[in-house]
């Protein structure tokens, strides 16, 4: 249960950074924090008390006493996609900085009308 609270807290902190902060790199940091919170939430849902890792590495391990592998596979995918998203977002940030010489989103006004 405490896992759920902490992961929701991390997600909300990331959302706060996206909503309030003015710096573009801070906004990307907020996005990556939201990613992290979601990963922890998904893995915590798949946890089972007294379970073992879902690897049949030794004889004698049975499927009953294992944690759920499906959220882990989902999170494995999500982490890699998160890296791709972060890389593309930071490339956009670098391009915007080269164009406008600032990272403050209040001063980047050429696309407003």
């Amino acid at each position: 249960m405490i896992y759920y609270i902490a992961s929701i807290a991390v997600m909300l902190i990331g959302l706060y950074a996206v909503l309030v902060k003015k710096n573009l790199i801070k906004i990307v940091i907020g996005l990556s924090l939201m990613d992290a919170g979601t990963h922890l939430l998904l893995v915590a849902i798949g946890f089972i008390k007294g379970g073992t890792a879902p690897i049949f590495s030794e004889p004698g391990l049975t499927a009953d006493a294992m944690v759920d592998p499906v959220p882990q596979a989902l999170v494995l995918t999500a982490i890699v996609i998160g890296l791709a998203v972060t890389a593309v977002a930071l490339a956009l940030v670098i391009r915007i900085y080269a164009q406008h010489k600032t990272l403050d989103i209040r001063k980047i006004s050429s696309l407003k009308w």
Binding site: V43, A44, A53, Q72, V75, I79, V80, I94
Partner: peptide
Amino acid sequence: LHAPDVALTEAAIGVALTTAIFLIALRKT
């Protein structure tokens, strides 16, 4: 939480590569 696969991925991607990409982007800005 008994998820060694995810732990390894997070250690390789989250700790090493994401930080490196952020630092490179910070150097350019």
